[in-house]
């Protein structure tokens, strides 16, 4: 198809030279765009604030990003199946309460186990409601958001659960090789999620189900099981996020994580995961999280009020998706 014909000799190579970099940038706009913006943003904040570019501040960013990161990596699983998990915020709250209660009576390991199990259980219910009763993910997890939040408030009586072991609270501030433990936890979730998505049968099936559910079903894939597994993954990741947040405040909080549904969906979408499912890489999501966290840290240092920050995060989400729709390769190309 590509041969250069003699009649257009001088023109054809010129066209090629123009097209190659453009098409390369287009094809990889998602992979390149966001990291580039993150780097640019870092440079801008470095100039505008003399505190921004410092090890303590970077640790700060890391710790505050860690919980969002863990939750967003879980959200990625749900969205890759062409679903959505809006219950992540209240799952974080419930896990915080259950984990703290168990930890107070039975010690840290039991508490962590209970935390993970709670998150997995919420994910299981989400998955079953969505697959078994055919409730749309949006409605199912929106409803579960209310159910789980109510459960967290009832269990705690609406007040914080205090008296968790001090060693647990210290976890949030300990450093290993200069890196805060929450950051290491988030990194562990990232590596695990990456490996699961790329190198396991489950991971590839999640992409298949999200990419074309009917084709996957006709290929003998048990679509319902895959979806349930994805929501369980989302629940477990939310647990990890909750453990990080709970350790930071050293108590179980029934109102923890209220902003996480929006922020995690924002991080995932900014990171280039298609809301239609089956498309995108979790590495992009990590950059999505960095974007949101660095933006909010930088704005803090510039004394921008947090209410204004909320507006900016929402606007950034709309802007990113709009840019992608206008210039990015976005959806699959037209058929020929």
């Amino acid at each position: 198809m590509m041969g250069v014909s003699d009649s257009t000799g001088p023109i054809a190579p010129a066209i090629d030279a123009r097209f190659v970099p453009v098409s390369f940038l287009r094809r990889h706009s998602r992979e390149i765009g966001l990291p580039l913006i993150v780097v640019l943003m870092t440079m801008v904040f470095s100039v505008s604030s003399d505190v921004f570019l410092s090890a303590p501040n970077f640790r700060n960013i890391g710790v505050s990003a860690a919980a969002l990161a863990a939750v967003s990596f879980g959200q990625t699983f749900a969205i890759l199946t062409a679903g959505l998990d809006l219950s992540v915020g209240s799952t974080v709250a419930l896990v915080s309460i259950v984990g703290s209660l168990v930890m107070r009576s039975y010690g840290i390991p039991a508490g962590l186990l209970a935390a993970i199990a709670t998150g997995a259980a919420v994910g299981l219910v989400n998955g079953v409601v969505i697959t078994r009763f055919k409730v749309f993910p949006f409605i199912a997890t929106l409803a579960m958001m209310s159910v789980v939040s109510g459960l967290a408030l009832s269990l705690s009586g609406g007040v914080a659960v205090t008296g968790v072991p001090a060693a647990f609270g210290d976890l949030a501030y300990q450093l290993v090789l200069g890196i805060p433990v929450p950051v290491l936890m988030a990194a562990a979730v990232l590596v695990t999620a990456f490996l699961v998505l790329r190198y396991t049968r489950l991971g590839r099936r999640i992409y298949a189900v999200g990419g074309n559910e009917e084709a996957a079903r006709l290929s003998g894939i048990q679509v319902s099981r895959i979806k349930v597994a994805a929501y369980i993954m989302s629940g477990i990741c939310a647990s990890v996020g909750s453990i990080i947040l709970t350790a930071r405040v050293a108590s179980g909080q029934p109102s923890l994580g209220a902003t996480l549904p929006l922020e995690s969906v924002a991080a995932v979408v900014l990171g280039g995961i298609s809301l239609f499912g089956g498309r995108g890489s979790i590495v992009g999501v990590a950059f999505g999280v960095l974007f949101i966290s660095i933006l909010s840290n930088g704005l803090n240092l510039m004394n921008v009020p947090s209410y204004t920050q909320m507006m900016l995060v929402g606007a950034a989400l709309i802007l990113a998706v709009a840019l992608d729709q206008t210039f990015g390769s976005g959806r699959a190309g037209r058929r020929n």
Binding site: T200, R205, Y207, A208, A215, S219, R279
Partner: peptide, 26 residues
Amino acid sequence: GLVLSMSGVENIAMASLEDYCIAGVL
């Protein structure tokens, strides 16, 4: 028939993925 967003390689393996997995690892 196909998951268009996935590669040709993966589509070929779509109905026989078990054959390339050991304990679920691909």
